[in-house]
Computed example of a mutant assay.
Amino acid sequence: MPEPDLVTQALARNLKRLRTERGHTLDALAARSGVSRGMVVQIEQARTNPSVGTVVRLADALGVSIARLLDYDETSQVRIIPADEAVRLWNGPDGGSGVLLSGIEAPGPLELWTWHLRPGETHASDPHPAGTVEIARIDEGELTLVLDGRAHRIPAGSTASYEAGTAHSYRNEGAVDCRLTLVVSVPPPGK
């Protein structure tokens, strides 16, 4: 994993650059994202480590992937991300994790994640922009996906696809660890 300070600095630099490129004031980005102006300022000054939800809302408001917001090396045509440089964005209370493996803009943000949920852990996700689709491949254990208040059990070896424009959560209600690979496809802005 990259040093947390490296990720914080990259987020600060990229957020400010992307906000400026799109002509958004601090107030405008705060309004578009639902993230307070004060929090945007703290992030741009690298004074805070925001939650996954905050980073998702900012990326969605800017029309970019989370990976682009966190990218600390945009110099190569072929981007190879070693396992130890993937960005951990969620830590569960019992040792679970959500790790952003990679992401691109094609034509909207496309992200590849690996998630590890320990028994009893839950991660709640805010709604993504309308038209966002997720594909979850359960590698180990069983995932309980809650979408629109309805629970769906997805066993190991299965793949589920769903629209993620509403609140949803990932739960491990089993006795063994749950590991999954997740693809998130966000439509380009204005679509």
Rank of each mutant, 00 (worst) to 15 (best):
L26Y: 15
A130D: 13
V40R: 00
E74C: 05
D139F: 01
P107Q: 09
H168L: 11
H116V: 07
T8E: 06
T181P: 08
V184L: 12
D84R: 13
T8M: 09
R32S: 13
V186Y: 01
P129Q: 06
G63Y: 01
Q9I: 06
S102R: 08
V183H: 15
D71Y: 03
K16A: 10
R179D: 05
S97H: 07
L147C: 12
R171D: 06
L26M: 11
P155L: 03
H123A: 08
D71E: 12
G34T: 07
P188K: 06
G34A: 07
L6K: 15
L62W: 00
R153H: 03
G103V: 03
T54Q: 12
A59Q: 02
S36T: 13
S36G: 13
V87C: 07
S65I: 01
L11D: 01
D126S: 11
P4L: 14
N172G: 05
T132I: 08
D126R: 07
Q45S: 14
H116E: 14
V7S: 00
A61M: 08
E3R: 08
A151F: 09
T181F: 02
E21A: 12
G141V: 03
P109N: 03
Q45L: 12
V99I: 03
Y170C: 10
H152D: 08
L69R: 06
L147I: 15
S169C: 09
P129E: 05
E173C: 10
W113L: 03
D126Q: 08
A151Y: 11
W90L: 06
V184R: 01
D177A: 15
G157Y: 01
L117E: 03
P155E: 05
L11K: 00
Q42S: 10
E134T: 04
Y170V: 08
V146E: 15
D71I: 02
R32D: 12
A136R: 00
R118M: 12
N172C: 05
V133M: 10
A106P: 02
H128L: 10
A86C: 10
E111P: 01
C178G: 10
A59W: 00
Y162R: 11
G98P: 04
A106L: 11
R179F: 02
L117R: 01
D71F: 03
L110I: 04
S33Y: 02
V183Y: 15
E21Q: 11
L29T: 09
T25A: 08
A30Y: 13
I66W: 00
S33R: 01
Q77N: 06
R153S: 10
A164S: 12
Q77M: 03
R32L: 15
V176E: 14
T132A: 14
S97V: 02
G38K: 11
N172D: 05
D84A: 13
R79D: 12
A86I: 03
V55Q: 00
L69F: 10
L182S: 06
L182F: 13
A156F: 01
A59V: 05
V133W: 15
P127V: 05
R13H: 13
A28C: 02
A59R: 01
E140Q: 15
A67F: 02
A67R: 03
A30P: 14
R47K: 14
Y72L: 03
S51P: 00
R47H: 11
P50H: 07
G157F: 00
H152L: 04
G96H: 13
E121A: 07
